[in-house]
Amino acid sequence: MEEIMNVIKNIFLTVLLSLFLISNSNADKIKIGTEGAYPPWNSKDASGKLIGFEVELAWTLCRYIGQQCEIVEQDWDGMIPALTSKKFDAIMAGMSITDERMKTINFSQGYADEVASLAVMKGSDLEGIDTPEAVNLNLGGSSVNKAMKTLTSALSGKTVCTQIGTIHQNFLESGDVGKINLKTYKTQDEVNLDLTNGRCDVALAAAVAFTDYAEKSGKEVVLVGPTFSGGAFGNGVGVGIRKDDTKLLKAFNKAIDKARKDGHISRIAIKWFGFDASM
């Protein structure tokens, strides 16, 4: 019996010690949270490494700030709470700057434009939908209203899929496109899977998320309808930072300025998106 007691004591000590060690390593690094499941913004390759536009940009920005960084994985639906509970210090996860989010956290200036689009499988009856090429919800006016009307009737009764907690979900729930059957997923990867499986009639996400998927999977995913910006879609993608962390906010703003001027953001954007999405 003594033996069992000793074993249990040892387990306790080891666990407590390891918790302590883990919690004290990397204390002075800037920790950046990303999702790792939203290619080409951020994803993971088969060697387990985080890759993508934001991962590469994060390293550049850290170099400019002049501090060591560590990139931390975090599920999308826990991203903002993880930031506020100090699991990491900054979010770079394709997160658009919106008023709703600004109530809880701060954002740096935008570093990239995220253009949203609907996508369907080839052969869908939505393919021929007649709308302008781009809709900016900030502008309003008759052409935007007409486009929204066309969309409302085209999407009526359709199963529309999108990732949970995104600007895309906000837009679809806003009532601007009428009554749809909305399905929300934990990751964009899952949205893509169910779009190709046929569980979704149509999906909404960043346009590049679909084109990247179509290219890599060889599936016939095609963009339809207009590209969306403004309104619920926010004002570009920025670095999310805690409200009280003004020093880090300034540092990131400065670093983004520098990376924009010397062309780094454009170069990295072209490498991952195929076009210059910097802003």
Binding site: S23, S85, K86
Partner: peptide, 28 residues
């Protein structure tokens, strides 16, 4: 998880630890 630092610190204070606890995935 969403309670974050607050909850963890509360639990730690039960065990008599008052310092700052850094939340990492393993601990949570």
């Amino acid at each position: 998880f969403f309670g974050g630092t607050g909850a963890a610190m509360y639990v730690a204070s039960i065990f008599g630890y008052d310092g700052y606890i850094e939340i990492n995935a393993f601990i949570t």
